[in-house]
């Protein structure tokens, strides 16, 4: 469990897109070692929250502190270098390179400095790290495959593995299981969680599947209309009537429609 040392704090974090409030004065504190599930209907502000914290978008107001340092308004590069990394809903990989080269590139960039930028990327030590990552994330059979031709699940794993190349203190996973068939979800989450816990990375993940949230998260944050409407252990948050109404209800309804439209896709569940 968490040792109560705050790792990430937001105070009055605000962001608006036109008339849509994507972040309404968010005051949230996260602790080191916590595994947090972030839930909410589409458009509730989950991804915006991750985008704001990791510097992809600039907040309209408020502050973000990471490991005691003010990182408000800093770009992705600086936030990443500070030890806050992320993965993406749509995996962001180097499409023309092989899986192994993607990882090698990730390890290389993680280590880049003024003096090392000119030395060869290819080094036995780095190759060993790549092998390790390939093993941890069970991607060995795909090592030589081009990243843009990978199955979705493997591409997701690659995206996450690359995000860990810097050995982050906090890793934010944006919908790690989206686009993955229900049968594969647990296997994928098991691999990810085992790998990250072994590295003692604090994990935040956005997730639509409440069973996954209930199983892997220690704390759940429910978003609606840019605000946090519930925050606490999964058992409490998932049974909160407002969460049931605003997050889960709507979500299950939407899923029902989808199942009607395309029954074979999720027939396993």
């Amino acid at each position: 469990m968490s040792d109560r040392e705050p790792i990430l704090e937001t105070r009055g974090l605000r962001k608006q897109f036109g008339a849509v409030v994507a972040a309404a004065e968010l005051d949230v504190t996260f602790h080191r070692g916590e595994t947090v599930g972030i839930i909410g209907a589409n458009g509730a502000g989950k991804t915006t929250f991750v985008n704001l914290v990791t510097g992809y978008q600039k907040p309209d107001g408020g502050t973000i502190r990471f490991l005691g340092r003010d990182i408000t308004g800093q770009g992705p590069r600086h936030v990443t270098k500070a030890g806050l990394c992320r993965s993406f809903q749509i995996p962001q990989v180097f499409g023309s390179m092989s899986v192994a080269d993607n990882l090698l590139m990730a390890v290389g960039i993680a280590e880049i400095g003024w003096l090392t930028a000119g030395s060869p990327l290819e080094q036995p030590r780095r190759r060993a790290l790549v092998e390790e990552l390939l093993a941890t994330y069970r991607m060995e059979p795909y090592a030589g495959h081009r990243a843009d031709l990978l199955p979705q699940g493997v591409r997701k794993l690659l995206d996450i593995a690359m995000a860990t190349a810097r050995k982050p203190a906090l890793l934010m996973l944006d919908e790690p299981t989206s686009g993955i068939s229900a049968v594969e979800k647990y296997g994928l989450m098991d691999i990810i969680m085992a790998a990250l816990r072994a590295q003692q990375v604090t994990i935040h993940f956005i997730e639509h599947d409440m069973e996954i949230v209930g199983r892997y998260a220690e704390r759940v944050l429910a978003f609606a209309a840019g605000d946090v409407i519930a925050d606490g252990p999964p058992a409490r948050v998932l049974h909160d009537p407002r969460v049931q109404e605003l997050v889960i209800g709507r979500h299950e309804a939407a899923r029902g429609v989808l199942n009607h439209a395309a029954p074979p896709a999720e027939s396993g569940s």
């Binding site: 990791t54 770009g75 992705p76 590069r77 990443t80 270098k81 990394c85 992320r86 993406f88 962001q92 990989v93 180097f94 499409g95 023309s96 390179m97 590139m105 990730a106 290389g108 960039i109 993680a110 280590e111 880049i112 090392t116 930028a117 000119g118 030395s119 060869p120 990327l121 290819e122 690359m162 995000a163 190349a165 810097r166």
Partner: peptide, 23 residues
Amino acid sequence: DSTAGRMTTAIRDNEIRVLYLGG
């Protein structure tokens, strides 16, 4: 062949990923 040189392809493929690797 250097890290900076190999980053050329990485940048062409995906700038966002390069940034989020700290490059």
